[in-house]
């Protein structure tokens, strides 16, 4: 399977509060809240690091989980965030302009 690259949308304001990320979408005034594992993925979404590498180096290093399970959950999360318009998901590195 090809790698996925993820990048945060520029149309959001995000702040970390108590280990959880609060994200406000300027597009439709929706407030999102990510739990601790989702926050790690969000913070690593630089558009250049493949998702499987983020999972292996960040999620599995910090949380007690097997890479296969973590990757499956991460893919599900990023697709959901993409659907909300706050994360870009691509099969090639995302160039931030």
């Amino acid at each position: 399977m090809s790698s996925l690259y993820i990048a945060r949308s520029r149309q959001v304001a995000a702040r970390e509060l108590g280990g959880e990320m609060m994200i406000m979408s300027a597009r439709d005034s929706t407030l999102f809240s990510l739990n601790d594992v989702a926050t790690v993925i969000w913070q690593a979404a630089d558009g250049q690091t493949p998702l499987d590498e983020i999972v292996e180096r960040r999620v599995c290093a910090e949380f007690d989980v097997e890479p296969a399970e973590a990757l499956k959950d991460a893919e599900s999360l990023v697709r959901e965030l993409e659907g909300h318009g706050i994360l870009m998901v691509s099969e090639t590195p995302v160039v931030s302009g």
């Binding site: 005034s29 929706t30 990510l34 739990n35 594992v37 989702a38 007690d64 999360l77 909300h84």
Partner: peptide, 17 residues
Amino acid sequence: KGRKPYRKPEVRYEKVF
């Protein structure tokens, strides 16, 4: 040792106004 308990990553959301 040293790793936190894993929770499935999740997002909650609410339309503010």
